Structure formats: C-alpha cells, structure tokens
Simulated assay, not measured.
Amino acid sequence: MKRYLLIMLLSFCCAISAQQGTSLTDKQKAKQEEEIEKRKAKYVDDLIAELNIDEFQQHIVKQKLYDYFDEKLKILQINQPYFKREQQIQDLDATYFEDLNGVIPDEAIAKMKKRLKGEDEEDSKKKKKKKKRKKKSKDN
C-alpha cells in the first residue's frame, strides 16, 4: 500500500515538472520571437536610413522589406530539399523588388539588394577589423 502511494506521488510530481518545462519553453519562444522582431525592425530602419529617400518612399520600402522577410521565412520553413529552397530564394531575391523601379532610384534598389545579400562594404570592413583584433589578442 505504501509503495503504491509512493509510486503515485512520484508519478504525479514528474507530470507536474514536465508541464512546467514546456511552459518555460513557450516563454522562451515568445521572448525569442520578440527579440527577432526587434532586430528585424532595427535592421530595416538602418537600411532605410542609408538609402537617402523621402518619407513616402521610405514607407513603401519598409512595407516591401517586411513582406520580403515574411516570404523568405515561408520558403525557409517549407520542408523541401536544400537546392530547391536555395533556388526559390534566388528567384525571390531577383524578382521581388522589381516593382520598386519606378518608385525609388536604381542606386537605392541596388544598395538595398547588396545589403540584403550581405555584400555590404561597411560590414566587411568591420569584420576585417574584428579579425585583426582577435588575432592580436591571441598573439598576446
């Protein structure tokens, strides 16, 4: 009888601790999604500030960038082979901003595409400086 009560008590405690573990992961997921949204908003704001376009154009580009990120996320979440996903992303990159040609200057579109691909010159300069600092700190 005592064993039976002990087993029931232990199984009840395990069930409660398992439920608490899942609620923590839900909180962590919500916090992580919030952090991602903050980073995305900061990235979009920084990119728009670099483009040197007027307020109306900024609003259009901002909406277009958020839609672009949503479309890219949908592609990445689909369970497909790697090469198909990469092809879809390349197609998205090539065609998604074509309708902005008449709205903003071509230089701004080129700069935006370059930044989205990660080919920004400022970022590469920062990375080189960071590598030099790491190398110096390893040598010392």
Rank of each mutant, 00 (worst) to 15 (best):
residue 66 Y to P: 00
residue 108 A to N: 05
residue 126 K to S: 01
residue 92 L to S: 08
residue 49 A to H: 09
residue 134 K to M: 14
residue 34 E to L: 15
residue 106 D to C: 01
residue 29 K to G: 02
residue 131 K to A: 10
residue 104 I to Y: 07
residue 77 Q to L: 01
residue 38 K to I: 15
residue 110 A to M: 04
residue 56 F to A: 13
residue 69 F to V: 08
residue 81 P to G: 10
residue 19 Q to W: 11
residue 75 I to L: 14
residue 84 K to I: 07
residue 39 R to G: 12
residue 26 D to G: 10
residue 39 R to C: 04
residue 50 E to K: 13
residue 103 V to A: 04
residue 8 M to Y: 11
residue 135 K to T: 10
residue 30 A to K: 12
residue 123 D to R: 09
residue 49 A to V: 02
residue 48 I to T: 06
residue 118 G to T: 03
residue 67 D to C: 02
residue 63 Q to D: 12
residue 44 V to Y: 05
residue 110 A to D: 05
residue 16 I to C: 09
residue 40 K to M: 14
residue 4 Y to N: 01
residue 105 P to H: 05
residue 90 Q to F: 07
residue 113 K to M: 02
residue 57 Q to S: 12
residue 98 E to L: 15
residue 24 L to G: 03
residue 58 Q to L: 01
residue 37 E to I: 15
residue 7 I to D: 02
residue 33 E to I: 03
residue 113 K to A: 01
residue 31 K to W: 02
residue 83 F to M: 02
residue 22 T to K: 15
residue 67 D to H: 10
residue 135 K to G: 09
residue 25 T to L: 06
residue 43 Y to E: 12
residue 44 V to L: 02
residue 64 K to A: 06
residue 131 K to Y: 12
residue 106 D to A: 15
residue 140 N to H: 13
residue 9 L to S: 13
residue 30 A to H: 09
residue 17 S to R: 05
residue 78 I to K: 03
residue 102 G to A: 09
residue 63 Q to L: 07
residue 46 D to E: 13
residue 31 K to P: 00
residue 16 I to H: 02
residue 113 K to I: 08
residue 5 L to M: 08
residue 12 F to E: 06
residue 87 Q to D: 11
residue 110 A to Q: 06
residue 54 D to E: 11
residue 83 F to Y: 03
residue 87 Q to T: 04
residue 68 Y to R: 05
residue 38 K to S: 11
residue 106 D to K: 13
residue 117 K to A: 15
residue 127 K to T: 04
residue 98 E to S: 14
residue 1 M to R: 07
residue 124 S to E: 11
residue 121 E to P: 00
residue 136 K to Q: 15
residue 82 Y to I: 14
residue 25 T to A: 05
residue 7 I to K: 03
residue 89 I to H: 00
residue 75 I to P: 09
residue 19 Q to I: 06
residue 114 K to S: 09
residue 88 Q to A: 15
residue 38 K to Y: 06
residue 137 S to F: 14
residue 59 H to P: 00
residue 66 Y to A: 01
residue 78 I to A: 06
residue 18 A to F: 15
residue 66 Y to F: 13
residue 10 L to R: 09
residue 66 Y to K: 06
residue 134 K to W: 05
residue 50 E to C: 06
residue 13 C to N: 02
residue 126 K to M: 07
residue 59 H to S: 08
residue 103 V to R: 00
residue 119 E to C: 01
residue 101 N to D: 11
residue 85 R to G: 06
residue 107 E to T: 08
residue 130 K to P: 08
residue 82 Y to P: 02
residue 77 Q to R: 07
residue 90 Q to W: 00
residue 56 F to V: 15
residue 102 G to V: 05
residue 45 D to P: 01
residue 76 L to R: 10
residue 86 E to T: 13
residue 59 H to C: 00
residue 96 Y to C: 06
residue 133 R to Q: 14
residue 118 G to L: 01
residue 93 D to F: 06
residue 90 Q to T: 13
residue 38 K to W: 05
residue 67 D to W: 03
residue 3 R to C: 01
residue 133 R to N: 12
residue 55 E to Y: 08
residue 99 D to V: 00
residue 65 L to I: 13
residue 111 K to Y: 03
residue 138 K to A: 15
residue 86 E to S: 10
residue 19 Q to G: 01
residue 119 E to F: 01
